[in-house]
Amino acid sequence: FIDQHRAALIARVTNVEWLLDALYGKVLTDEQYQAVRAEPTNPSKMRKLFSFTPAWNWTCKDLLLQALRESQSYLVEDLER
C-alpha cells in the first residue's frame, strides 16, 4: 500500500507531525526524525520520509500504514477504493 500509493500520500497527507511522532523510536531514528521535521512543507516532509523507506521491511511499512489509518483514515479509505 505504502509503495503503491507513494505519490498520493506525498501530495495528500496533512498531519505529518503526528506520523513522525508515531514512528519515532520504532522506525525512525532521532536523526531521521529531525531531518523530516526540518523540511518546510508537508509534501517535502513526506518525500523525506519516503527517502528512508527503501531500507524498511514490511513491518516498518505496516507501522506507517497503521499510523496513517489512525491519523488520516479518510485518506486511507479513499486510496483503498
Rank of each mutant, 00 (worst) to 15 (best):
V16Y: 00
D62G: 11
A22T: 12
W58K: 15
Q34C: 10
L65V: 13
K48N: 02
L49T: 06
K45V: 05
R6M: 13
S51F: 05
P40H: 12
V36K: 09
D3E: 08
E77R: 11
L75T: 01
L20C: 14
S71W: 01
N57I: 10
H5Y: 10
Q32C: 04
L49R: 07
A55L: 13
S73T: 13
F52E: 00
C60W: 11
L63Q: 11
D62A: 13
P43D: 11
R47S: 11
V16A: 03
T29I: 02
A22M: 12
Q72G: 05
E80N: 05
C60L: 08
F1D: 04
M46C: 00
V13G: 05
A22H: 12
D62R: 11
V76L: 10
S71D: 07
K48I: 03
M46K: 02
P54T: 14
L49S: 02
E80L: 08
L63V: 11
W18R: 15
A8V: 08
L9G: 05
L64S: 02
Q34S: 08
L9M: 06
E39D: 00
V36I: 12
S51W: 02
T53G: 04
L75H: 05
Q32P: 00
P40K: 12
R12I: 02
P40A: 11
A8L: 03
R47H: 08
L79N: 04
E31G: 07
L64C: 07
D78W: 12
R37C: 11
D62C: 10
P43L: 10
V16F: 00
G25Y: 06
A67W: 07
L20P: 06
W56R: 06
C60H: 15
Q34E: 13
C60K: 14
A55G: 15
K26G: 07
K45G: 03
T41F: 00
A38I: 08
E80F: 07
K48T: 05
Y33G: 04
S73W: 10
I10K: 01
K61E: 09
D3Q: 01
D3Y: 03
T59L: 12
G25T: 02
R12H: 11
K48A: 03
Y33T: 12
F1W: 00
D62M: 10
Y74V: 14
A11E: 13
H5R: 03
Y24T: 05
L75F: 05
S73F: 06
D78G: 11
A7E: 15
L23E: 04
L63A: 12
N42G: 09
C60F: 12
I10A: 04
D21M: 10
E70T: 12
N15P: 02
M46Q: 04
K26D: 07
E70A: 11
A67L: 14
S71R: 06
A7S: 14
R37N: 13
A8K: 07
W58S: 15
F50T: 01
V76T: 06
K45N: 06
R47V: 12
E17K: 07
L19N: 04
E17V: 00
D3F: 03
P40C: 08
P54V: 11
K26I: 13
W58Q: 15
N15W: 05
L75G: 04
K61V: 05
N42K: 03
L28N: 02
L79M: 04
L28R: 01
F52D: 00
